[in-house]
Design a protein around this nucleic acid. Structure first.
Lengths: 363, 363
DNA sequence: GTGAAAGCGCTAACAG
DNA sequence: CTGTTAGCGCTTTCAC
C-alpha cells in the first residue's frame, strides 16, 4: 500500500523553515541564502523528497507533460516516431503520455479529452484525418498542437497549424517515375486510408503523374489497402487476378507492400521478373536481404524530434501564432523489387530531376 | 494561449448550485435529486466541462494513470507490448505514460522518479535488470509494480513481485534441441544482455542443454550481441570467421538473428545449407517469405494485457501481497533456417517432449 | 436534499 | 533573508 512520500511540509518541518523557503530553495530562488539552500537541499535529498508534479501542475505553471497520439504502435511507421518524441521530451524535462486511436475519430476525441483533463501542455498528433473535427477544435482553442505525418485540409484552419510531414506527392511521383522509366504502364495501386493526407496525397500524386503523361488510371487498378495488412493482402490478390495482370504494384505503405509481396510470392510469381513492387516509408524490413523492396524513405526519428521541438517552443517561448510547417523531401531508395539493377531504365522514357532535402515555411 | 476550460465552479455558478452539488452529481451520488443531477449534467455537457484529473489526483484518490517502462520502442519486441498496455489502460479509464531507458539504469531511475512525482498509480517495467536497485526500492516501498519480459533475481524481493515472463530456459532448450537433432554440434551463440533475465536465462538454457549431453560449449562460440543490431552484427562475423566455422548460430533475439542473417548472406553463405540460424521472440519479420527464420515466439500482446490486468487489480482491488507470477510457454515455430524441411531430424538423435501453454503461480 | 469549509502539495504575492 | 496567506480544482466531512 505504497508508503507515502514526504511532502514539502515534511521537509520544512525537518529543516525548521517554512514550506515557502523550501520551495524557493528548490527553485534556486536568489532570495534564499546559500547556506540554508544547501541545508535544505541536503535534507530533501536525504529524505528522498520529490516534489509532486501534480500539485505543481495544479497551481498552474504547466504540467511538463505532453501527449502523443498515434494510430497504433503496431504499425511499423510509428515506433521510431514515438521513440523520438519520448527521448526528446525526457531530455527537456517532459513526460509523454501515449494514446493510440486505431484511426477511429471517436477514440481520438476520447484521447484528446483525457489528455486535456490531465493538463498536458501540448499535443502531437500523427493520426489526423483530412477533415478532423478534433484537431480543428484544438486549433480553434489555440491549444499547442503539432501535426506530424498527417495533416488536415480544411481552410483556413489548415494554415494555422504547425506540422511536419513528408512530401507525399513528390514521393509518389518519384516512385511512379521510377516504374514508368522501367517500362511499366499498367501499374496496380494499393492505396492507404484516403481520408488521411498521406493516403490521399500518395494516390493523387500517382494519378497526377499518369495524367501528365496523358495516361489514364484504369479504375480496376485502384484497390483499397487502408494501411492494413489484411486489406492490403486481399487488394493485392485482386490485382494479381486481373487479366491482363498489372506489371507493377505501387503500395502506399511498406507494410502493405510487404503484404503484397507475400501474395505475389504465394502465387509463385517472381519479383521483379514477373511483377515489380514499390512501397512507401522506408521501414527496416524493406531493406532486409532477399526482401529488398524499392521505396521512398521518411526520416521518422527526425520528424518526431522536429515535431517535439516545435511543440516545446510553442509552449515555452509562447511563440506567437507563427506557424512552422515543415515538408520534408523523401529519399528514394532503389532496391531489387523493380528490376532497375537487372535491366536499367528504358532509353525511350524521359527523366525529370528530383532534388534536395526538406524545406521550412514560416510565416 | 489556450483558452481555459470551465471549472467545477463555473458549472456550479451557471447551475446556481454549489460546487459540492456539481461534484456529487457528476459522481452519481444518491444524495442528489435526479432532477438536479440531470440539469447539471446537461449544463456540464453544454459548457464542455471536463473535470481536471490533476485536481482529482491531488485530492488523493489516485491519478488513473500508469507508467510503462521499456528499453526502446526501436526494438521490435516492445511496440506490441506497449500497444497492449495502452489499449487496455484506456479501456479501463487509465492513461499510460511511456518511458524508455535504453537499458541505462540511471535513466531508469530518472523515469521512475518522474513517474512517481506524477502520481502514477502503478508502473509496469519491461526493462528490469537482474539486480536492479530501482525495482528493488519500488517493491520495498510496496508500490504497485509489475515486471514483464524481464524479471529480477535478488531474493527475497524477487519472490514478492508480480511478473509476466516467458520461460526462457525452455525456449532456449527447445531451440537447442531442434538444432541438435538436426545434427548440429558446433553451435555459435550470440547472447543478449547477460545482466538481464532474458539474456542470462537464454544463454544458461542453451548451456544446460549442452551440459546434459556431456557437451562443452567452446568459449569461442560464445559472443556478445547485447540485444543490439550492431553488436550482433560483429558477433556474427566473429563466429563466421572461426575455423572450423560453427554449423549453426543461436541468436538470443530475432533482431540479432536478423543481423546475423545479413552477415551470413554477405559472405555468400546459404541458410540453412551452409549454416543454420535460430532466433528468439517471434517478431513479424522472421516470418516473411525468403527470411523464414526458425524461432520461439512470445505472445507479446497477451503479455502486455496480463501485466496490465495484474497491475490494475493490484491498484484497485488493493489485493493483498498475493503475488501472481506468470511464466508463459514459448511457441516453437519451425521455418526454413535450419533445414528441418529439407533434411528432417537425424534418426540417431533422441527426443524429449515439450508441452502446454502457460501456468500461473499464486501464493 | 443541499451548502460551507477544510485540505490535497505546491507556488506566489505580500508582509515583516 | 524568511514566514503568512491565499488559492489552483476538486472531494469530502459535517452542518443545515
Amino acid at each position: 500500500m505504497a508508503k507515502k512520500r514526504p511532502t514539502i511540509k515534511d521537509i520544512a518541518r525537518i529543516a525548521k523553515v517554512s514550506p515557502t523557503t523550501v520551495s524557493m530553495a528548490l527553485h534556486d530562488h536568489p532570495r534564499i541564502s546559500t547556506r540554508t539552500r544547501k541545508r535544505i537541499l541536503r535534507i530533501a535529498k536525504r529524505e528522498n523528497y520529490q516534489p509532486s508534479l501534480v500539485a505543481r501542475a495544479l497551481v498552474g505553471k504547466g504540467s511538463y507533460s505532453i501527449g502523443l497520439i498515434v494510430s497504433s504502435l503496431t504499425d511499423p511507421f510509428y515506433p521510431e516516431l514515438a521513440q523520438a518524441v519520448e527521448e526528446n521530451s525526457l531530455q527537456l524535462g517532459y513526460n509523454m503520455i501515449l494514446c493510440s486511436t486505431k484511426n477511429d475519430i471517436g477514440v481520438e476525441k476520447y484521447c484528446i479529452d483525457s489528455l486535456r483533463s490531465r493538463g498536458v501542455d501540448g499535443i502531437i498528433i500523427s493520426s489526423a484525418q483530412l477533415v478532423d473535427p478534433n484537431v480543428e477544435s484544438l486549433i480553434e482553442g489555440d491549444f499547442p498542437t503539432v501535426l506530424v505525418n498527417r495533416r488536415i485540409k480544411n481552410e483556413p484552419l489548415a494554415e494555422r497549424v504547425d506540422y511536419v510531414v513528408v512530401d507525399n506527392f513528390l514521393g509518389a511521383h518519384m516512385l511512379m517515375e521510377h516504374l514508368f522509366r522501367l517500362g511499366h504502364d499498367r501499374i496496380g495501386m494499393i492505396t492507404g486510408l484516403l481520408n488521411t493526407s498521406t493516403g490521399f496525397e500518395r494516390a493523387e500524386g500517382a494519378k497526377r503523374f499518369l495524367g501528365e503523361r496523358g495516361l489514364q488510371l484504369d479504375p480496376k487498378l485502384l484497390t483499397d489497402g487502408g494501411y492494413s495488412r489484411e486489406l492490403a493482402s486481399v487488394a493485392a490478390r485482386k490485382l494479381l487476378n486481373l487479366n491482363p495482370r498489372p506489371s507493377a504494384i505501387f503500395a502506399a505503405s511498406d507494410e502493405m507492400a510487404l503484404a503484397a509481396r507475400e501474395a505475389i510470392l504465394d502465387l509463385g510469381l517472381h519479383i521483379p521478373q514477373d511483377i515489380a513492387l514499390v512501397g512507401f516509408d522506408g521501414i527496416d524490413a524493406t531493406g532486409y536481404r532477399r526482401v529488398e523492396i524499392t521505396t521512398v524513405a521518411q526520416r521518422r526519428y527526425e520528424m518526431g524530434s522536429m515535431a517535439l521541438k516545435i511543440l516545446i517552443d510553442r509552449i515555452e517561448k509562447r511563440t506567437p501564432p507563427m506557424t512552422s510547417q515543415v515538408i520534408m523531401k523523401p529519399d528514394m531508395v532503389i532496391r531489387d523489387s523493380c528490376g532497375y539493377r537487372l535491366y536499367g531504365y528504358k532509353p525511350d522514357r524521359s527523366l525529370k530531376a528530383m532534388n534536395p532535402t526538406h524545406d521550412t515555411v514560416s510565416r
